[in-house]
Design a protein around this nucleic acid. Structure first.
Length: 263
DNA sequence: ATGGTGGGCTACCCA
C-alpha cells in the first residue's frame, strides 16, 4: 500500500506533474493539499483517466483545498470536519480496508500562520495556534484504532527538520509554541513514520522556498509535510520516500511529494 | 532590516 502526500499548489496548473509523479511513484492513494479549485471545477475526468476512479474532494476558490485519489475503493469518512468555525477546506478523511482491517486516512492542510509569530498582533498565527488546540482536543476523543494522518502541517518540529535550528526559532513553522503544539497533536496516539525510518539526527526536508533560486545548493529546507500512523500500523511500516527530484521539475510546487509504504 | 518568488485572480490576497 503506497500513499503519497503532496502540497501541489494548484491542482489544475500541475496536472501534468501529477501524471509524471504517478509514473514515478505508482501510488495506490494520493492525498493533495492546496488544490485551489472549487468543487464544481474539480478535474475529475482527468484524474479518472490517470487510473484513480475513487475520488473525494473539498475545495474552494483561490485558497486551500484538499482531495484524496485512490485506485481502490475508499469512502468519505464521517470524521471529515471543519475547524475553527471556518469552512475553509483544510481536512478530508476517508475509510478503506487494508488487509481486512478498517483504516481511517486523514489529509490535513494546517494554516501557514503568516510572518509574525505573535498571536496578539497576527490573526493568522492565532488561527494556526487555535487550529492546533482544536485538532489535538478532538483527536484525544476521536482517534480510530487504525489511523493514518498525512498532509502539509506547516510545522517543522525537530532540530534537524530545519536547516538551522537556531536561526529559525523565531520563524513561523519552527517556534517553540508551534513545535510543542504539533508534538501534543502527535501524542494523541500517532507515531511519526518518517522519523521511524530516518533517524532524528539526520536532516530531512520536504519544502524549499520559491524565493531561493539556488535551493538545492544552499539546501535551506524544512520538513513541513508529515506521515503519521497509529502504533497498530507500525508493524506494517516498510519505507518512506521523499521525492526531492520533483522540486527540479518544470514549474514545481515548493513542497515535494512524500510516500508512505505499508506492507 | 529588507526583499527575494510563486498561484489565483483582476485587486491584492495567500503561501
Amino acid at each position: 500500500m503506497r500513499i503519497i502526500s503532496w502540497n501541489i499548489n494548484s491542482l489544475r496548473l500541475r496536472l501534468p506533474l501529477l501524471k509524471e509523479l504517478i509514473q514515478l511513484a505508482n501510488p495506490d492513494i494520493i492525498c493533495l493539499q492546496e488544490t485551489k479549485v472549487p468543487d464544481p471545477l474539480f478535474p475529475k475526468e482527468d484524474i479518472e483517466a490517470l487510473g484513480y476512479p475513487y475520488i473525494v474532494y473539498r475545495g474552494m476558490k483561490s485558497y486551500n483545498g484538499v482531495c484524496i485519489l485512490s485506485k481502490h475503493p475508499i469512502e468519505l469518512s464521517s470524521l471529515t470536519k471543519d475547524w475553527c468555525g471556518q469552512e475553509d477546506c483544510r481536512h478530508i478523511a476517508v475509510d478503506f480496508d487494508f488487509l481486512g482491517k478498517p483504516v481511517t486516512l486523514h489529509n490535513f492542510y494546517v494554516p501557514a500562520g503568516g510572518d509574525e509569530p505573535d498571536p496578539d498582533v497576527n490573526p493568522k498565527f492565532q488561527h494556526k495556534l487555535n487550529f492546533l488546540q482544536e485538532v489535538t482536543a478532538w483527536f484525544k476523543d476521536n482517534l480510530s484504532q487504525n489511523s493514518i494522518l498525512v498532509g502539509d502541517l506547516n510545522i517543522a518540529p525537530l532540530e534537524h527538520d530545519v536547516w538551522s535550528h537556531k536561526q529559525l526559532l523565531k520563524i513561523v513553522s519552527h517556534t517553540p509554541i508551534e513545535t510543542k503544539g504539533l508534538t501534543a497533536w502527535l501524542k494523541t496516539g500517532f507515531v511519526d513514520a518518517m522519523r521511524e525510518i530516518v533517524p532524528s539526527s539526520e536532516k530531512l526536508y520536504t519544502w524549499w522556498s520559491y524565493r531561493n533560486k539556488d535551493w538545492e545548493k544552499t539546501n535551506r529546507g524544512r520538513r513541513l509535510d508529515h506521515l503519521w500512523i497509529t502504533p497498530t500500523l507500525v508493524p506494517y511500516l516498510q519505507a518512506i520516500t521523499v521525492y526531492k527530484e520533483v522540486r527540479n521539475w518544470e514549474k514545481p510546487s515548493d513542497h515535494v511529494p512524500i510516500l508512505l509504504e505499508l506492507k
